[in-house]
Design a protein around this nucleic acid. Sequence first.
DNA 1: CCTCTCATGTAAGACGTTACATGATTCA
DNA 2: TGAATCATGTAACGTCTTACATGAGAGG
Lengths: 187, 187
Amino acid sequence: MSVRHAILGLLHYQDMHGYRIKRHMEQHFGHMWSINYGQIYPNLKKMEEQGLVTKKEVARAGTPSRKLYSITAAGKEAFAEWLVSDPHGTMLLRDPFLLRFVFFGFGSKDRALKLVDEQIALYETQLEKRRENMRRWQRQGIYVRQMGELGLLLNEMVLDWLKRSRKEIAESADGEVPNQLMELSLD
Amino acid sequence: MSVRHAILGLLHYQDMHGYRIKRHMEQHFGHMWSINYGQIYPNLKKMEEQGLVTKKEVARAGTPSRKLYSITAAGKEAFAEWLVSDPHGTMLLRDPFLLRFVFFGFGSKDRALKLVDEQIALYETQLEKRRENMRRWQRQGIYVRQMGELGLLLNEMVLDWLKRSRKEIAESADGEVPNQLMELSLD
DNA sequence: CCTCTCATGTAAGACGTTACATGATTCA
DNA sequence: TGAATCATGTAACGTCTTACATGAGAGG
């Protein structure tokens, strides 16, 4: 499970508690993964049972006591194994927008344009955020910086693609979209 | 649920049975999504119960009878609604390799290079496949073709990125990777 | 006073993957 | 004879999301 290993990775840097782990992941890997408490707390618990991490409760007046987790030798070993395990194939773009995009031919051109525009706006906002983050990533070593660069490249590429698609859709007559029924029935 | 809507989309083209749906998705959207029988058959069943599709059993001597599904008016309506529903944010690159990549600083440089090389080989193989598929997508209307182009662009971009990263990793001294512990502890 | 951030957690359900079971036909 | 393809399905498990419950402190 990736979430588990990501946590073990972070604990190499320093001891952390759940809330902090979530914030950190969102700030550093937010453009690649999502994460939530429903994953973090149960996984920390399980990893403690497995001896991959240890818990140290730091009581503080008032607020719920922080639970600081540290990685153990066994945890480091498990992490090291995972780090060099074999590749699992190429990236999938399991993106709900893209899936809808493929079927835009069944809706009206206007609707398609509207949805593409919304998506363009989204990517433009995100591009700015990523450019800001880039400054932070720059100082974090080769690998973190490279990951950030990939995120930026991807964002720019998708944005360009959306704009080109938009243009082509706008220029096509509404009926110009070929009837895909015939084509697809060939296989 | 996306799988359900993807199936409804395909049924716009023509009636299909489960096996065929899987094959079709793998051939046309294989670079973006994965799918398996554990999703298809239960979902077809459920959609039939909901009146989104109807089943017609076509008995054939010997082999298990094919179950041809057709989309109903209600199904088309549900699909049309989904098609114009609001965007859900930007793409996530939930890729196991990338997650490991970020932590390569904790392993040796040689291991990192080996893993990057394996990934490069994977993407090169896939790039060829996608170039072949492009011919098929070309004839399927704007949207399918654009999706195919995005897949190609993404593949080329990641491949370039991997090669550039490889070079930079190779040129870095093994100890040159900054100690990320200090940097990260700042937030 | 109200909202935001800090902080921990659970429960239910949605979604996805893997492995298995079955069996005929086609092709080498 | 053996492997691949066609064809349908289930069970178990793993993973992820959403919503909820709780409560203190800080700042406007």
